[in-house]
């Protein structure tokens, strides 16, 4: 395992704080010359995960924070986002691609995370998501564990 950069921090339940940490992680990917498509996917997944944590998990409660940890190597990136909310059961989120849900204005975030990341796992309580993305040309599994 050769981790090139890592950090962990607590951010307040504010979307602008989410934006700032998102920019920090994207900058790391760009510094490590990740392909544009990987950067697109990670940014999108990060946005969805951070909004979920801040809005749905912590309900924008100023007394609650979100823990974000990130490890980047030349081959993969691993991000953990943990809120202080009650958690949820991801399997209970309705499939947004079903005909009856197609016109619902929300409920697509988890699907987009899964589509653009290599793996997306939730802890048992559902208040922590672990996102992993292998660099496009890297076939091996994430070495940031």
């Amino acid at each position: 395992m050769k981790v090139c950069a890592e950090f962990e921090l607590m951010i307040p339940s504010e979307t602008c704080a989410g934006q700032a940490v998102q920019e920090r992680i994207i900058k790391l990917l760009e510094e490590h010359q990740y392909p544009e498509r990987d950067v697109f996917g990670v940014r999108l997944a990060l946005e969805e995960a951070l909004v979920n944590a801040i809005k749905h998990g912590n309900q924008m409660d100023a007394s609650k924070s979100v823990r974000v940890s990130c490890r980047v190597s030349m081959r993969c990136i691993r991000i953990e986002i943990e809120d202080q909310g009650e958690g949820f059961v991801p399997e209970e989120v309705p499939d947004p691609t079903e005909d009856e849900n197609l016109e619902r204005p929300c409920g697509r975030g988890i699907m987009l995370m899964r589509a653009f990341m290599t793996t997306v796992n939730f802890t048992d309580r559902g208040n922590c998501v672990i996102l992993e993305k292998n660099r496009e040309e890297a076939a091996a599994s994430c070495e940031c564990e």
């Binding site: 697109f40 946005e47 969805e48 909004v51 016109e103 929300c106 975030g109 987009l112």
Partner: peptide, 17 residues
């Protein structure tokens, strides 16, 4: 437009309606 989140998709769906 280079990036679009699910929240933005939600607004487009409401606009369509």
């Amino acid at each position: 437009v280079e990036y679009l989140s699910s929240a933005a998709l939600g607004k487009l769906i409401t606009m369509d309606k």
